Simulated scan of single mutants.
Amino acid sequence: MTVTPPPSADPARIAEYHAHVYYRPETKAEAAALREGLGARFAVRLGRWHDALVGPHTASMYQVSFAPEEFARVTPWLMLNHGGLDVLIHPATGDDLADHTTHAAWLGQRLPLRLEALV
């Protein structure tokens, strides 16, 4: 019996990646140091600090955007340097719900998301 694999999605449709770095008031200095390290080492766009909840996020955070070509450099560095911070990394394919859920990877703890904000 031959099993046909499911259709695959083309990674070429990934426009960029987003890393959401979550923090609490007591970890904001650690988040700032991580942000400074990212900005100094990589070709990334550092988003604004969001102390108030925004979009699907249930904790304070900032977003780091980077090109697909930077993924293999940025992600391993984040894996080794995120410390006690939780980080959501996801592609931007145009399907916000899938990008934040089934296409996502977490460093640290997986935090709940307000998925209704994505539909």
Rank of each mutant, 00 (worst) to 15 (best):
R24C: 10
P25C: 04
P25I: 07
P25F: 06
P25T: 09
E26G: 13
E26Q: 14
E26W: 08
E26A: 14
T27R: 03
T27G: 03
T27V: 11
K28N: 08
K28W: 06
K28I: 13
K28E: 08
K28M: 07
A29N: 09
E30H: 07
A31D: 06
A31I: 07
A32N: 08
A32V: 09
A32E: 09
A33F: 06
L34K: 00
L34I: 01
E36S: 06
L38C: 05
L38K: 05
G39F: 05
G39W: 04
A40W: 03
R41N: 15
R41S: 14
R41Y: 13
F42Y: 11
F42C: 05
F42E: 10
A43H: 15
A43C: 13
A43Y: 12
V44D: 03
R45H: 11
R45A: 13
R45S: 11
L46W: 10
G47E: 13
G47L: 11
R48T: 10
R48K: 13
W49P: 11
H50W: 12
H50G: 09
D51W: 08
D51K: 11
D51Q: 13
A52G: 15
A52T: 15
L53V: 01
L53F: 10
V54E: 15
V54A: 15
G55K: 14
G55C: 09
G55N: 13
G55H: 15
G55T: 12
P56R: 15
H57N: 12
H57Q: 07
H57P: 07
T58R: 15
A59D: 14
S60H: 05
S60T: 10
M61I: 09
M61W: 10
Y62N: 09
Y62V: 06
Q63K: 04
S65R: 11
S65F: 06
F66C: 10
F66I: 03
F66S: 05
F66A: 09
A67N: 12
A67K: 10
P68C: 02
P68N: 01
E69M: 00
E69T: 04
A72T: 00
R73Q: 02
R73I: 00
R73C: 02
V74P: 02
V74F: 01
V74L: 00
V74E: 01
T75S: 00
P76V: 01
P76F: 04
P76Y: 03
W77M: 04
W77G: 02
L78Q: 02
M79I: 06
M79C: 12
N81V: 02
